[in-house]
């Protein structure tokens, strides 16, 4: 049993002891952290985005400290595309430079649009968990379905950011938006 499994088991035990709603949110955070980590495997960034050969893979988390915390645990001692993973917590409006992936916590549409506009055209995989996030230019957006975490993928913003998303990832997406 590896570390992740152990951790997941531990978290599951912790979650069982919490009230139902808190339990749901905790599990959701864990799953989303894990998904974020795994997205890195199915997306190809332009080589220029990495300064050096051993440059780290940087994941920015904005407006979701619980997810950042969970992600930090998940990526510890792990690599994405052979690179060490760095989790950077960002405040709203902070510059997005040096990031490869950006998770934006639940936001209202205006703010979300603002942040996504900043990311637009950059080789940055944007992941959101808000309704209409795709419409605002997010690449991946988490949705809940049948009490499970699923996600939609929009290809045009990815293409604009010169990101190539593996078809295998597309295969497990809830919806893939091409236009």
């Amino acid at each position: 049993m590896d570390a992740l499994t152990r951790r997941i088991l531990f978290l599951a035990l912790v979650a069982l002891s919490l009230p139902a709603l808190a339990q749901d949110r905790a599990a959701e955070v864990q799953i989303k952290a894990a998904f974020l980590y795994k997205f890195g495997e199915f997306v190809q960034w332009p080589p220029a985005t990495f300064a050096r050969a051993d440059a780290p893979f940087v994941i920015g988390v904005m407006g979701a400290d619980d997810v950042a915390a969970a992600l930090e645990q998940v990526v510890a001692e792990r690599t994405v595309q052979g690179r060490p993973v760095v989790v950077r917590r960002l405040r709203r409006g902070e510059a997005l430079t040096g990031l490869h992936m950006l998770f934006i916590g639940r936001e209202d549409s205006a703010r979300l649009a603002e942040t996504l506009a900043a990311a637009k055209g950059q080789p940055l995989l944007t992941v959101t968990e808000s309704d209409n996030a795709i419409a605002h230019g997010s690449v991946i957006n988490f949705v809940a379905e049948d009490q499970k975490v699923r996600f939609d993928i929009a290809l045009p913003p990815a293409e604009r950011g010169q990101l190539k998303i593996s078809s295998r990832l597309l295969a497990v997406a809830r919806r893939v938006i091409s236009i």
């Binding site: 799953i31 894990a34 998904f35 795994k38 495997e41 199915f42 499970k148 975490v149 699923r150 996600f151 593996s166 295998r168 990832l169 295969a171 497990v172």
Partner: peptide, 14 residues
Amino acid sequence: QMTAPALSFDDARV
């Protein structure tokens, strides 16, 4: 290999 993403993203349907 084919089901690896499904496992990763907990998609039993896929």
